[in-house]
């Protein structure tokens, strides 16, 4: 049976996030030929609707309201539930982002539905779809299916390939008026700390430092390399505990789990907790002075050497190939 699937799109700094396009691809797969409806909630999101259609949504419903400028679970759940009531979908897909993680359990609870979080792959299509998700931070995986009733999933960024962008695709865009009221939270301040606008969990390239980085200043060459590759910096718990960087950069079983295309581990020994957070990256490079370091066991390429020597050389070399 084909399913009508609703996908929540998410914008960051005025543009849709990649994970939204990946969520559309997931929605297509579970729709089994049914309709895929994009949803955009915000204070000014109308202009982003076309892009969802270009990536595979059949049509888009937008809700615009001043209270939706910044995310709060109260405001977004009211707006989303209004769309749900109008559309009555058989399945819902969110990105497994800060917003998706915060909002999806509330919606699932309102709808008394299951919720399969943090999906990294989908096997089969339509009703036969089975969802793969990491457990124990990627030390193992489970295959989960929805028993019956509404299917609700969140998809991890960077894992499900988006559909090809097609600027010729067209579809309807309709605004839904929702009175967003009774908010219990006020966001009084937002401090942007994330580096260069690239979110760690969504970055295609992650350059991570460990105790071997030795100081907060030691992260500077790593940041330069990350910026050059359009990536983000991360860290091991050792580096965070030593106050070289903020805990928000920590990768591991506590901290973030990342699966970039390229993970460069510099001065990281490779404790089991750290490896759980990054070993499913597509390509791993390890740079460490200690040839016995555990990190070399999961690395595709390893250089035994001093990161303060190797990283600047890498920066020079990459600059060379970029200018050629």
């Amino acid at each position: 049976m084909s399913k009508k699937v609703v996908v929540l799109g998410e914008a960051r700094e005025g543009a849709l996030r990649n994970v939204s396009f990946e969520a559309i691809a997931a929605a297509k797969k579970i729709s089994g030929g049914g309709e895929v409806v994009g949803v955009l909630l915000g204070d000014a999101v109308q202009s982003l609707a076309e892009e969802m259609i270009h990536y595979g949504a059949d049509r888009v419903v937008t809700v615009e309201h001043p209270h939706l400028k910044l995310y709060t679970s109260d405001a977004f759940s009211q707006a989303f539930m209004a769309v749900y009531e109008q559309e009555k979908p058989e399945a819902i897909v969110f990105g497994h982002t800060a917003l998706g993680k915060d909002l999806s359990p509330k919606i699932a609870s309102k709808l008394a539905s299951g919720l399969i979080s943090d999906v990294t792959a989908i096997e089969g299509e339509g009703d036969a779809a089975v969802f793969i998700r990491p457990i124990f931070s990627g030390k193992a995986f489970e295959k989960v299916k929805n028993k019956d009733g509404l299917l609700f999933i969140t998809v991890r960024p960077n894992n499900i390939a988006p559909l090809e962008h097609d600027a010729g695709r067209t579809g309807g865009v309709a605004a839904l008026a929702v009175d967003v009221t009774n908010l219990r939270t006020i966001i009084s301040e937002v401090i942007r700390k994330s580096t260069e606008g690239v979110d760690l969990s969504e970055a295609k390239v992650v350059v991570a430092g460990g105790r071997g980085v030795k100081s907060a200043e030691g992260f500077e060459p790593l940041q330069e390399l990350a910026t050059l590759l359009g990536g983000a910096i991360g860290a091991s718990r050792g580096a965070c505990d030593a106050d070289y960087c903020d805990y928000s950069l920590q990768i591991g079983q506590t901290g973030k789990v990342v699966t970039p295309d390229l993970y460069i581990a510099a001065g990281i020994s490779g404790a089991i907790q750290h490896m759980a957070g990054m070993s499913n990256s597509k390509v791993i490079v390890a740079i460490n002075k200690d040839s016995e370091a555990n990190i070399f066991k999961v690395a595709d390429y390893g250089i035994v050497g001093d990161l303060f020597e190797v990283i600047p050389m890498m920066i020079e070399e990459i600059k060379k190939i970029k200018t050629n």
């Binding site: 030390k139 193992a140 690395a299 595709d300 390429y301 890498m314």
Partner: peptide, 29 residues
């Protein structure tokens, strides 16, 4: 429960990678 786990498995073991050799400058290249 609304969902059901039908299988649990371990990720495939990664084959040992390549440790580069030689002068550091050449390794980087």
């Amino acid at each position: 429960a609304k969902t059901q786990t039908i299988e649990i498995y371990l990720p495939p073991q990664k084959a040992a990678g390549r440790i580069l050799e030689g002068e550091v400058a050449n390794q980087v290249i």
